[in-house]
């Protein structure tokens, strides 16, 4: 065991545990965006930073291993400023309208999301920029990642105007869950984006439509078409939804499904992150095999190439 001090309290954690684990053990809430229980930490969002005595900069609690004798503060002025600016930077560049957790933090940290000026008009060239080059800004508006949603298959939508580049989908598609490697981060800097090779449409990629990327996306950038269509039509009503757990009927693995039902229709399928069978992951049948019955009839599987 390793003993350290966090916000003035002593806590003991296992060797290899992170500062975030230590905070959780004490019931201290540290906000995270790019961290997820079953994914390798990428420590990219910097929302979880904390102050470690003796360190020159703040440290990402999700990735920093606890060491004996560390003295850590999770909620100092310095910490709050960085978190606030991170939220301001995200909110000024990304559409967070389907990211309720972030909206709550923006409120809690008093983030001024308009301080960089009005948002710039969406652009159509985000997938085609030459690395190391960009148009000089005029400063009148704040650049964003806005671009048209990619609706190129019958099962799910990639609306990268809502993407905070948290790497979670890439990890879920890769070694952390699916081992399919259909998507990766392309480009550099502000032009970094989740992409298939040469921005090909998803049906031309290695994607197997497991939807495990959807499950981990913190902002709704990745969304089942069923949910996307309902939201677009103004028919998405969380107050009328219930969640029921059941076992997937399609094969013998017996994955736990969490069916989100609205007005007697299954509008979204997840699997609980803490399920010992799935750790939140499903395959195309479990994730989409019940919703498309309602939404798209037999159309969806034909659209989604099987291999």
């Amino acid at each position: 065991m390793i003993t350290l001090t966090l916000d003035g309290r002593t806590v003991s954690v296992e060797e290899g545990d992170t500062l975030l684990d230590a905070a959780t053990a004490l019931g201290i809430d540290v906000p995270t965006i790019c961290w997820a229980k079953h994914l390798t930490p990428v420590n990219a969002c910097r929302m979880c930073v904390v102050e470690l005595e003796g360190a020159r900069t703040l440290v990402a609690s999700c990735a920093r291993r606890a060491e004996a004798g560390m003295v850590v503060h999770t909620n100092t002025e310095r910490v709050r400023t960085s978190r606030k600016v991170v939220l301001e930077l995200l909110a000024s560049s990304v559409d967070l309208s389907t990211a309720p957790k972030l909206a709550a933090w923006i409120e809690a940290y008093g983030a001024d999301v308009d301080r960089f000026g009005p948002k710039a008009e969406p652009t159509s060239d985000r997938d085609a920029r030459q690395t190391g080059d960009h148009h000089a800004p005029d400063g009148a508006t704040a650049a964003t990642v806005a671009q048209p949603a990619k609706v190129d298959n019958g099962l799910f939508v990639r609306d990268y105007a809502k993407c905070v580049t948290c790497y979670k989908c890439v990890e879920a598609c890769g070694t952390d869950a699916q081992n399919t490697f259909a998507i990766a981060i392309a480009g550099r800097g502000f032009d970094a984006r989740v992409s298939v090779e040469f921005n090909a449409p998803l049906p031309d990629s290695a994607c197997v439509y497991c939807g495990n990327c959807i499950a981990v996306c913190p902002t709704g950038a990745l969304m089942a078409l069923s949910e996307y269509d309902l939201r677009k039509a103004g028919d998405w009503h969380e107050d009328r939804q219930t969640t029921t757990e059941t076992i997937c009927p399609y094969c013998g693995v017996g994955c736990t499904l969490a069916l989100v039902v609205q007005d007697n229709r299954i509008v979204r399928v997840d699997s609980p992150e803490d399920s010992s069978v799935t750790r939140g992951n499903l395959c195309i049948k479990g994730r989409f095999g019940t919703t498309f019955v309602h939404e798209h009839g037999a159309k969806a599987p034909a659209d989604a190439p099987s291999r």
Partner: peptide
């Protein structure tokens, strides 16, 4: 131009 783009 030179930011790797990893962190916010």
């Amino acid at each position: 131009d030179e930011s790797c783009g990893q962190c916010v």
